[in-house]
Nucleic acid binder design. Sequence first.
DNA 1: CAGTGGATGCTCT
DNA 2: GAGCATCCACTGT
Length: 186
Amino acid sequence: MRLNLRRSAHEVAPDLIGAELTFDGVGGVIVEVEAYDHEDPASHAFQNRRSARNASMFLGGGHAYVYRSHGIHWCLNIVCGDPGVANGVLIRALEPTHNLEAMIARRGLSDPRLLCSGPGRLCQALGITKDQDGWRIDRAPFRLRARKAPVEIVTGPRIGLSKAADVPWRYGLAGSRFVSRPFPSR
DNA sequence: CAGTGGATGCTCT
DNA sequence: GAGCATCCACTGT
């Protein structure tokens, strides 16, 4: 499979499940994401409204959008679609596969299930901060590799939102023990 | 396991 | 000044 990040976040999001993401050789397999588009009241760039924070969401598919969450954590999006239209996929959880020692050192934990199971946790584990905002996700030191085999995908409502909390734009790898929270069984 | 509250800083009104 | 696309520690079953 080939990843085309110039499509909308809703098309890209399920294709990212099972893909491999690393930064400086540290990372793993994407097991949970959420899609956000410019017509989404929960998006930082609702109605394509630009701000200092969300500028990189307008750079077009293949860039990183990193923002500060709750004053403490960093969260990583993969920007999708055409330049000028704010689309992004929040990377919520990885199954760690590459350089777990570096993750353990940064996180101060060794349980593999707690290293990258959450958007803030995975940025801490990989060493991603505001410095990476606007960088290309498909070039060094990032690396993004499409999945090689079909996967089973589950969906559900997105996490932690007060607006548009009903739409099922959260995607996960079925049966993964590394998602940040269980998906609704039905 | 479920629920609660604190930490903490930036964005936008 | 309010509100977070979060996480962790702590409480009570």
